[in-house]
C-alpha cells in the first residue's frame, strides 16, 4: 500500500498545527473581558465596601430612617430605600461580601465533597457505588429547611462559615450525582482501559484521564449553584436561623422586598439585578474557561 487515503488537518510549515494556549484563547473573546470586569468589580466591592458605600451620601447600611420608608430612586438614595428606610444601594454594597462569600464558599465546599464522593462512586463502582448512592439519596431526601433549622439552631455562633457549611451539606448531593454519571461515562472510554492496561496507578488515571474529561457538566451546574445558594441563605436568615441580625446580604434584601413588590418594585428590582449580573458573569466565565481548557474548543 502506498496510497494513504486519510483526511488530514491543514498543517503549518513545520508540520505542527497552529495552536493557542488557554490564556491566548480567552483574551481574544470580548465576552470574557466583560464578565471578568464585572466579577473583579464585585470582588473589589466585597473587599472594600466602605469605599463604595458612601459614594452617593449615606454610607452606613444600618443608618435607616423610618420616615424615608420605601422611597423610590432619587437624590441621596440612588436606588431608593426599603421598608425600614435603609438605603438599598448601601445595603447592596455592604451585602456583597456576605453574599459572595456564602455563594462561592458553599459552592466550593459542595464541589469538593461532590468530587470526592462522585469520583469514588463512579470510578470504583460495585459496593462503594451502592453505599455512596444511598448516602447521597439520604441527603437528597432530607428536607432542606428542617435540616438547616436543626443544625443551625444547635450551633451557637452563626457566621458566614457555619451557614456556608450547612448550605453545602444540602447542595453537594445533586452535584455528586452529576460527577458520578460523567465519571462513569469517561471510565467506559477505551483510553481509560488503555491507561489501566498500561499499568498506571489509579490516582494518576483519575487525575489525568478521568477528571479532566468529566469536569464539564459539573462546572456548569456549579456556576448556577452560586446564585441558588445566595438566595437560599436569605431563606435561612429570614427564618431567623441564618446570619444573625443585624446583618446585610442580598438575600435578605430580596426576602424583605418580596411582600412589597407590587407597590414598590424598585426594592426587588435592584438587588435581583445585581444578583443576576453576578450569576450570569460567573456562568459565562465558567463556560468560557471550560471551552478554553478543552483542546477541541481552542
Amino acid at each position: 500500500m502506498t496510497v494513504e487515503i486519510e483526511p488530514s488537518v491543514t498543517p503549518a510549515a513545520d508540520g505542527s498545527v497552529v495552536r493557542r494556549g488557554v490564556w491566548r484563547t480567552l483574551r481574544r473573546r470580548p465576552a470574557f473581558w466583560v464578565c471578568l470586569v464585572a466579577v473583579a468589580l464585585l470582588a473589589v466591592v466585597a473587599a472594600w465596601p466602605a469605599g463604595f458605600g458612601g459614594l452617593f451620601g449615606g454610607g452606613d447600611p444600618y443608618d435607616c430612617d423610618l420616615l424615608e420608608s420605601a422611597v423610590g430612586p432619587g437624590p441621596g438614595h440612588p436606588l431608593g430605600t426599603d421598608l425600614q428606610g435603609c438605603d438599598i444601594y448601601t445595603g447592596l454594597v455592604y451585602g456583597t461580601r456576605t453574599s459572595l462569600s456564602i455563594g462561592l464558599l458553599t459552592t466550593a465546599l459542595a464541589l469538593g465533597i461532590a468530587f470526592l464522593v462522585g469520583t469514588t462512586a463512579g470510578y470504583r463502582g460495585g459496593w462503594a457505588d451502592s453505599v455512596l448512592a444511598r448516602v447521597t439519596d439520604i441527603f437528597l431526601g432530607f428536607p432542606f429547611i428542617l435540616g438547616a433549622i436543626i443544625i443551625l439552631n444547635s450551633t451557637g455562633d452563626r457566621s458566614v462559615l457555619t451557614v456556608s457549611v450547612v448550605l453545602a451539606i444540602f447542595t453537594w448531593p445533586t452535584m455528586a450525582r452529576i460527577v458520578r454519571t460523567s465519571v462513569r461515562q469517561v471510565c467506559d472510554a477505551e483510553f481509560v482501559a488503555a491507561a489501566r492496561a498500561m499499568g498506571l496507578r489509579s490516582s494518576r488515571i483519575v487525575v489525568r484521564y478521568v477528571l479532566p474529561n468529566a469536569l464539564g457538566p459539573t462546572l456548569a451546574v456549579a456556576t448556577i449553584t452560586v446564585g441558588g445558594v445566595i438566595v437560599a441563605e436569605s431563606t435561612l436568615t429570614f427564618l431567623g436561623v441564618g446570619l444573625q441580625a443585624p446583618s446585610v446580604s442580598w438575600g435578605l434584601q430580596l426576602a424583605s422586598a418580596q411582600a412589597q413588590f407590587q407597590e414598590h418594585p424598585h426594592m426587588l428590582l435592584f438587588p435581583s439585578l445585581v444578583l443576576s449580573v453576578t450569576v450570569i458573569s460567573l456562568i459565562a466565565l465558567g463556560d468560557m474557561l471550560r471551552d478554553a481548557l478543552d483542546p477541541r474548543g481552542r
Partner: peptide, 30 residues
C-alpha cells in the same frame, strides 16, 4: 503494574483510544 509494562494494548475505537486532553506526544510518552 510492573508486569503490565510487558503487555501493550490497542483497542477498537479510534475516537476513544486517546485521552482528548493529552497531546499525541504526551499519550505516546506516558
Amino acid at each position: 503494574r510492573a508486569v503490565r509494562a510487558r503487555i501493550g494494548a490497542v483497542f477498537q475505537n479510534p475516537a476513544a483510544a486517546l485521552n482528548p486532553r493529552y497531546t499525541v506526544g504526551a499519550s505516546v510518552g506516558e
